[in-house]
């Protein structure tokens, strides 16, 4: 089947999409967007989190066909030209990245959290991140990054 959708602001058409194929597979293998990661294919780790019509989803659980006519936004589409998104900048500044494999999903999740709740409490943050596994950081500096991004967006 053909898939037409808008990815990171650009209209895309992909041919020969198999109905059983996941959105994650389509993004990674057919659209040249390997930023979203595949770590469990079960919706448990959140590494593949992308926006689908501005709602964060696990791309591994969404059949590609579901994206027909909709907007997808991945970690590759968050920065504006050379300007990093405040969440990306906060991850950098807080030292919230180690191996980086979970990072793309976490950045989308945090981005979504701060849009919904610009001033989250620590409890809100832990709750919001509880669908994203990270094996490297112990989350401590990721929490720092969220606090930093929240504080910065408040200043703006």
């Amino acid at each position: 089947m053909h898939l037409n959708c808008v990815v990171n602001g650009e209209p895309r058409q992909v041919d020969n999409v198999w109905p059983g194929e996941s959105l994650l597979y389509t993004l990674r293998e057919r659209m040249g967007l390997p930023g979203s990661k595949n770590a469990c294919e079960q919706g448990e780790c959140g590494s593949c989190t992308v926006y689908l019509d501005e709602v964060p989803v696990c791309a591994c659980l969404v059949p590609a066909g579901q994206a027909q006519g909709r907007r997808v936004r991945t970690v590759e589409g968050l920065a504006e030209a050379t300007q990093l998104d405040p969440v990306q900048r906060a991850f950098l500044e807080a030292g919230a990245v180690q191996c980086g494999f979970c990072t793309p999903g976490l950045i989308i999740t945090v981005h979504d959290l701060l849009r919904r709740n610009p001033r989250p409490t620590d409890e809100d943050i832990r709750e919001a991140l509880a669908g994203n596994l990270c094996r490297c950081t112990g989350y401590e500096k990721i929490l720092d990054a969220v606090r930093l991004a929240a504080a910065e967006s408040e200043v703006r």
């Binding site: 930023g35 990661k37 970690v75 590759e76 920065a79 030292g95 990245v97 980086g100």
Partner: peptide
């Protein structure tokens, strides 16, 4: 010095290249 990591600008923008990102 606790300087920020030089690796991270790539990794926060989805530009990291892990094994499964290679060999399309």
């Amino acid at each position: 010095e606790p300087i920020p990591r030089r690796e991270d600008p790539r990794l926060v923008t989805g530009q990291g290249r892990y094994l499964d990102d290679l060999g399309a």
